[in-house]
């Protein structure tokens, strides 16, 4: 957990904390979740469908309130933050969606500056700079004039990330950010997220079904199963064949990727 530029980090208080969080909706969705997430960390959230990954992300950004336990942002209960303050702190990348209106990519990305404006205002220089930067790092400048509804799935996904970045958040929550992308762009995007997380001392949490992307990029992996944490720690600690088959219900082979040295997960049938 060190800053790349070697500057000391304010790591004493965890940035985002879940304390014994319970959530039920018809059935128990999350059961006694406790987490401490710190600045500069890239965390992968994995688990089978319906294990509660998206619900956990919702709780971590105060979209849902837990029935028991609490979520703390910078040591303060998350529900005490105003909607706008929360929007400035947490950037959220959701799964792909349609836009039915002729919105340009630039207009879409600038939406992230809403929480930075005081009331009704046209975007200022600072807003435009933030949007330009976000479009540059996501490699989306080339189509910033195009309409969002005319982009390909992969392009749209990059634009959705660009919007989250344009808000210059401290926490980035990503729900399957690499869905619809080819492998090269998946790698590019996670590399970018990792670099920004380090350089800017952000906290990034991403949900993914690509276990090998999780092991290659994440500092920590949280494995969920039926709303419980089955494992939480470094990829090598969490991704054991026993744990994986307990979570996903089929046999796995885990070896070491000879190039990166990270664990490599294959299905063993």
């Amino acid at each position: 957990m060190m800053d790349v530029r070697g500057q000391p980090n304010t790591l004493s208080i965890p940035l985002l904390v879940a304390e014994d969080v319970w959530f039920r909706f018809h059935r128990p969705v999350l059961v006694s979740i406790s987490l401490e997430l710190r600045r500069g960390e890239l965390v992968a959230l994995i688990g089978p469908n319906g294990s509660g990954k998206t619900t956990l992300l919702r709780l971590l950004r105060n979209r849902l309130r837990p029935q028991r336990g609490r979520v703390l942002l910078k040591g303060k209960p998350i529900e005490r933050y105003s909607r706008k303050a929360l929007a400035r702190t947490i950037g959220y990348v959701l799964q792909d969606h349609r836009v039915g209106f002729p919105l340009t990519v630039a207009e879409y990305v600038l939406q992230a500056r809403f929480a930075h404006a005081r009331g009704w205002a046209l975007e200022g220089r600072e807003d435009v700079e933030a949007a330009r930067w976000a479009l540059r790092v996501t490699d989306a400048v080339a189509f910033s004039d195009r309409r969002v509804d005319e982009l390909s799935g992969g392009e749209r996904q990059r634009v959705i990330l660009a919007r989250a970045l344009a808000g210059q958040p401290e926490i980035l929550l990503l729900d399957e950010p690499t869905a619809n992308m080819d492998l090269a762009y998946q790698v590019d995007m996670l590399r970018l997220i990792k670099r920004l997380t380090r350089e800017r001392s952000w906290l990034s949490v991403f949900v993914t079904h690509e276990l090998n992307l999780a092991t290659e990029f994440a500092d920590r992996i949280i494995l969920l199963k039926d709303g419980r944490i089955l494992g939480c720690g470094r990829p090598t600690e969490v991704l054991t064949p026993e744990r994986l088959s307990a979570a996903f219900g089929c046999a796995f082979l885990v070896d070491i990727n000879p190039i990166s040295g990270a664990p490599r997960v294959s299905i063993a049938t």
């Binding site: 950004r61 979209r63 909607r83 706008k84 929360l86 929007a87 400035r88 947490i90 959220y92 959701l94 969606h97 939406q111 992230a112 809403f114 929480a115 808000g167």
Partner: peptide, 8 residues
């Protein structure tokens, strides 16, 4: 959902 998370 977008509007909510962007602070509306």
């Amino acid at each position: 959902e977008d509007a909510f998370m962007l602070g509306v």
